[in-house]
Design a protein around this nucleic acid. Structure first.
Length: 427
RNA sequence: GGAGAGGUGGCAGAGUGGUCGAAUGCGGCGGACUUGAAAUCCGUUGAGUCCUCACGGGCUCCGGGGGUUCGAAUCCCUCCCUCUCCGCCA
């Protein structure tokens, strides 16, 4: 949600900034609605005021033993007028709320212009793609060769396309990756390990921005009230832990890390990444969330992105970091860095992490505030989130980058303690 | 799943349908006293929103939603949550 004061004061310049990220905002229509709201609200409130005054007078008259009938007659018509005014106001306010919940965040001034990913800017690259003196295989082939360690047919048998079954060393490697990430982020980066529900209510999804606009991307639970959805990312439960809270300044920044499965319907991506486990309906992810003071959030974004990069460095996987352009950013983000890891099977860098500063956008939606010592008042804090990392894609990266000519996969040093010391996976 | 109890301000805990946004205690903040601290005393201390340049004022909020009433924390309906007991269960 955008700052409503700014929206009211200068809808034109908001529209301009939204256009930067490809969103069309009708400032004129908004202004008209807003002035309607203003008028209806003051009318309603003055009627309420009158009702309160009269009721008070009736109370006093009754206490004094006077005849209150004449007073009752006076207010007879008030009720209906109030009810009508309230109904009108409600209608306008709910259209305004619909607009507010549907507007994406404003891009930060450092966000490059552009309509799609072709306009994203690489800001650094780390490591070199490995060179093979044989034709590198992709993870689908490798996983199959490893004793059906990755079994897409089995996944499909159980649940349809975009599901996978993992076995033996591959399953363990997947687990080892998640454990390793959690250990680094808790012990070295200071995040608080947090286990969260995988089903969340609609309020939480509105809070982080998945609802009301992106319901089609979520899995919903049918036979349960109130309505629950499977989390598309741990960002939803983790960030919403702050919903409705007022946090003391000295507790900030707060950092949470959580390893969860994530569930996405992938509606509208039917043709994309159909092979392998790049795009699944269910995948594991280790997620970082930070709550910060507003003046610290961009420094925090750099730190958080660095935490995600640290995992790839220790795994010895080449990657690059790109700044997303205005048109490629997610709904809630003011600025996003994507981290892309080298995948030999695709001969390309592919997204393995996305780190965003949403500024106060989510905080306003969920009323997550801090007490600003300068003003003494509760003000929206800033929220950030980032994958660190997507575990499934990371597994793909390890398999493909560490493959040998004979089909074995070398296990990166840092993972061996989690693999009972094993040095490789063998077919 | 069955039976019962309850959800009020940071916490604890009152609240006959009528100046109740809410007593009181604790906590917090400010001040007095003190060499300092404790103790004591005095004052202060919820959130949201609207109008206003401001001063200030209005409105809303006692788990959520709806209703009755001139007027609801208080009455009615409904949903949610918590606790106790029984059953079932990883």
């Amino acid at each position: 949600m955008l700052d409503q004061k700014a929206l009211r004061q200068d809808p034109e310049s908001i529209a301009e900034r939204l256009a930067y990220r490809g969103h069309d905002f009708d400032a004129g229509h908004y202004g008209a609605l807003e002035s309607q709201r203003r008028e209806l609200q003051s009318r309603t409130e003055s009627l309420q005021h009158e009702r309160n005054e009269r009721s008070r007078a009736i109370g006093q008259a009754k206490k004094a033993g006077e005849d209150i009938q004449p007073l009752l007659d006076e207010v007879a018509s008030l009720g209906e007028a109030l009810k009508a005014a309230e109904a009108d106001l409600d209608a306008v306010q709910s259209s305004l709320r619909e607009i507010h919940l549907g507007l994406p965040n404003l891009p930060h001034e450092s966000v490059p212009p552009g309509d799609d990913e072709s306009a994203n800017i690489q800001i650094r690259r780390w490591g070199e793609p490995p060179e093979f003196d044989f034709r590198p295989r992709d993870h689908v082939e490798l996983g199959e060769a490893l004793g059906n360690g990755l079994d897409f047919a089995a996944g499909a048998k159980l649940s349809g396309s975009r599901f996978v079954v993992m076995r033996d060393g591959v399953a363990r490697l997947h687990r080892a990756l998640a454990q390793f990430m959690l250990d680094v982020h808790t012990v070295e980066h200071g995040y608080r390990e947090t286990a969260v529900p995988y089903l969340v209510g609609e309020e939480a999804l509105i809070g982080t921005g998945q609802l009301p606009k992106f319901a089609q991307d979520l899995f919903a639970i049918e036979n349960f009230e109130p309505r629950l959805h499977l989390i598309p990312t741990a960002e939803v439960p983790l960030t919403n832990l702050a919903a409705g809270e007022i946090i003391d300044a000295e507790h900030l920044p707060l950092g949470y890390v959580s390893h969860t499965p994530c569930f996405r319907s992938e509606a509208g991506s039917y043709g994309r990444d159909t092979r392998g486990m790049i795009r699944q309906h269910q995948f594991d992810k280790v997620e970082l969330v930070q709550l910060t003071r507003p003046d610290d959030s961009y420094a925090a974004l750099e730190r958080l992105t660095g935490h995600a990069e640290q995992i790839l460095r220790r795994l010895g996987l080449s990657y690059r970091v790109v700044t997303l352009c205005g048109g490629d950013m997610g709904f809630a983000a003011a600025k996003t860095y994507d981290i892309e890891v080298w995948l030999p099977g695709q001969d390309a860098y592919r997204e393995i992490s996305s780190c965003s500063n949403t500024e106060a956008f989510q905080a306003r939606r969920m009323q997550a505030r801090w007490r600003n010592p300068d003003t003494g008042r509760p003000e929206p804090l800033h929220t950030l989130n980032g994958s660190a990392l997507a575990v499934g894609r990371c597994l793909v990266a390890v398999l493909e980058n560490y493959q040998q000519a004979d089909g074995r996969v070398v296990i990166p040093e840092v993972l061996r303690p989690y693999m009972a010391g094993a040095e490789w996976l063998a077919p």
